[in-house]
Amino acid sequence: MDELINQLKKEVIEQLNLEEISPDDINPDSPLFGEGLGLDSIDALELIVLLEKNYGIKIQDPKDGKKVFHSIRTMAEYITEHKK
């Protein structure tokens, strides 16, 4: 799980162009949206693409996104659960 979390941090930073943030800056349990990383609605859509591109997982209902993308850890858990 820790390995996946570290990998996800790097992928999120790259995909969302968070240039000045390093993986160590991201607490895996902190909310991704709202304060902190300053992510917006386009970033949320971009995370959906990331899951599909890197893990082959399609989020069918956009409403699920809120739970899945709550934090890096919830993303990692979702991936572990749904990976083929």
Binding site: L16, N17, I42, D43, L45, E46, V49, E52, K53
Partner: peptide
């Protein structure tokens, strides 16, 4: 085979 349009590019 790798069809992943990106919303942050498209916008």
């Amino acid at each position: 085979s790798s069809y992943f349009p990106s919303p942050s590019v498209f916008v």
